[in-house]
Write a protein that binds this DNA or RNA. Structure first.
Lengths: 212, 212
DNA sequence: GCAAAGTTTAACCAGATGGTCCATATTTGC
DNA sequence: GCAAATATGGACCATCTGGTTAAACTTTGC
């Protein structure tokens, strides 16, 4: 609705994206069950009816928000240029990127946590997400293969497993910062601590792969 | 209520624990917002009114469930006997325990995830939990100090940070098994994979601390 | 054996919740 | 220009939700 003319403006793409952005905020703030459809509609320039028009249900909307979040991180990884680097340097750079992305995007971490609380029920209905994510493993697999060939890395570890441990360390300190911070009386958001942890995670990943 | 005699039985301790057990199940299954107070009451031998009598509110009940979950894991750690072992062996044993506890108790992992989705709001009101958890850091600190003295470990890493990375690796593969499993088409519950990961996490922790 | 404290029951409620109905406006294809 | 397809608005609803009221039963202390 155009306020100046009183005329209705038809802009489906804009409406869709507006709903997604509003839903993202609300889901991040309150979780899936805690989020209120009316509250999402209120954050929007349009009405509740439109959410159902475009996304069928609250759960359909959540899936759309989740897919959008995954596609964002995956679109960034390919922009890293690792080809000119040594295997060790490339691995460090990829780890640094992963660390920073998680630290800078707690929203993404929260959405993934929420989806896991709900047993991955929504992701299971998405075929897009699987294909999207394989790229990281390929990227990592190339680095590891090169490192093994050059004798810098040991053969012991599969790319998926390295990715898992790397993600784990980056994910945990963001996703669990409230409980961990409370229990051990530390503020994980402090810049110095963040820098120290970034170094540490990089060390851990490299040391795991480096040949003795 | 005794069904045979029609007489009411007064057993507050049993009632309390019955409510906690029922609430634990419901929260684990549906999250905090998704859990229904009526559903908790239905799992119970008593009525909804009793939940409020003992725990004031839904959130008070959740906090009680959470504290109960933390106290369980912390009561087990001291039973590990690490004194006779070399620093490396002790560290491996502690890591193995942490790994197994997380893998065997996905409920605990879920409750912590749920609390983080809610910004650690409940834990912040609990003074007990902080004191409870320091023991792990002391335990780990002793092992590291001994390792440094003997020249087996490097000085670089603080006990809290080691605990964080260790927990991260153990926590992630349980907490995120639905999304991770779906995206990379692996079943993290498979025994062989579990064993491989246990070895891997132990390696990662040891390699991080071992002097070069 | 009785009064106070502690424990338990069942019915009840005001407000919120996800979702739908129906009418209407705009755009597109021809 | 006009009919079909696409978008949009706002009121409406059945059901569910966390929480409460009021009253009664059981145990404890003396």
């Amino acid at each position: 609705m155009d306020l100046a003319t009183g005329k209705r403006t038809l802009d489906p793409e804009r409406t869709r994206e507006g709903i997604l952005a509003a839903a993202h905020e609300e889901f991040v703030a309150h979780g899936l069950s805690g989020a209120r459809v009316d509250a999402i509609a209120d954050r929007t320039a349009t009405t509740k009816r439109m959410l159902y028009y475009y996304f069928t249900s609250k759960e359909g909307l959540f899936l759309a928000v989740l897919e959008r979040a995954y596609s964002r991180i995956r679109s960034l990884e390919p922009t890293l240029d690792l080809s000119g680097l040594s295997p060790a340097a490339a691995l460090r750079k990829l780890t640094d990127f992963t660390f920073d992305y998680h630290a800078d995007n707690p929203d993404f971490v929260r959405l993934v946590q929420i989806e896991n609380i709900h047993f991955g029920r929504h992701l299971r209905m998405s075929d897009a997400v699987g294909r999207l994510n394989v790229t990281v493993i390929e990227l990592l697999g190339d680095i590891i293969a090169r490192g093994c060939r050059e004798g810098a890395f040991r053969h012991a570890v599969a790319a998926v497993d390295v990715h898992m441990l790397m993600s784990a360390m980056c994910f945990y300190r963001v996703g669990n910062r409230h409980t961990f911070g409370q229990i051990f009386a530390v503020d994980l958001d402090r810049p110095e601590l963040r820098a120290a942890h970034k170094q540490l995670v990089g060390d851990a990943v490299l040391r795991l792969l480096t040949a003795d």
